[in-house]
Design a protein around this nucleic acid. Sequence first.
DNA 1: CTGAATCCTAAAGGATACTG
DNA 2: CAGTATCCTTTAGGATTCAG
Lengths: 147, 147
Amino acid sequence: MSDPSPPGDPPDSDDGDGNDHDVDSADAVDPDDAVERLEVWCAGEDWCPVTTTATLIGKKWHPVIIHRLLEHGPSGFNELQDAVDGISSKVLSDSLEDLQENRLVEREIISEKPFRVQYSLTDHGRSLEPVIYSMRDWGVQHLAPPN
Amino acid sequence: MSDPSPPGDPPDSDDGDGNDHDVDSADAVDPDDAVERLEVWCAGEDWCPVTTTATLIGKKWHPVIIHRLLEHGPSGFNELQDAVDGISSKVLSDSLEDLQENRLVEREIISEKPFRVQYSLTDHGRSLEPVIYSMRDWGVQHLAPPN
DNA sequence: CTGAATCCTAAAGGATACTG
DNA sequence: CAGTATCCTTTAGGATTCAG
């Protein structure tokens, strides 16, 4: 998992990903925050989309966090922790930080007093919907809770 | 939340054989199309298909291994290691063991002299195809190799 | 109260060497 | 060829504490 030096802030290279995001813009999008491709390092010689996607969301809690944000929309911290059901605050905090670094989740401070933040998916994060839902569907079809 | 069941040791895992958990009734298992459900423990109170699916394939190398087995078909150990490109033999061995315990991958000894084994997907493993391919597709659309 | 930071342990991941 | 064995580093994850 050694990600020696991720591009940090991905350089805004070509933005022509031909992907028109016709999301209902209930939330304001920063003009600077355009949809670009994330440059992701990959082990081995060949760059592999499966490997790299796995480095982004192949963590224990990431898919669930994204799923809850998809289902519930923008959420506060404790709201999210309650929704994820089983995660500790530290792990949730760490996971959210990682997701922010990878431009899948955005954090917004919506109130200073009392202090409140709101986590929401970026365009990239929202675009993971088919992936998350395919995971959910597979789980529904092939897994079962212990009796 | 505590984790009563260490990862890699799901509640129903047995190392022997002949002990498949019996799904009582309703799930008539067709020998030709045997699809039983894997009982997977889940953190928290509610059983969540996203969480549980993530515990099965939300590891760094699992999606890639499954992807290569989907693409290349049954493979030997070194063949697989070469295909995954970047994994060490120890991690590959550990990952394959975990995948076998979760009934996603099968190991078969196909020759004793010279010693040859073959790894292949079980029905459950093959059924992950849409999940893996949605990951691949997302990676292709939203990620880019570092320049 | 909410949202983290700190400390700690367990587990994952990895480099290398070695064996049947 | 198909792994183990060993050693080591990194990460995940949980309990607790803390700031606002």
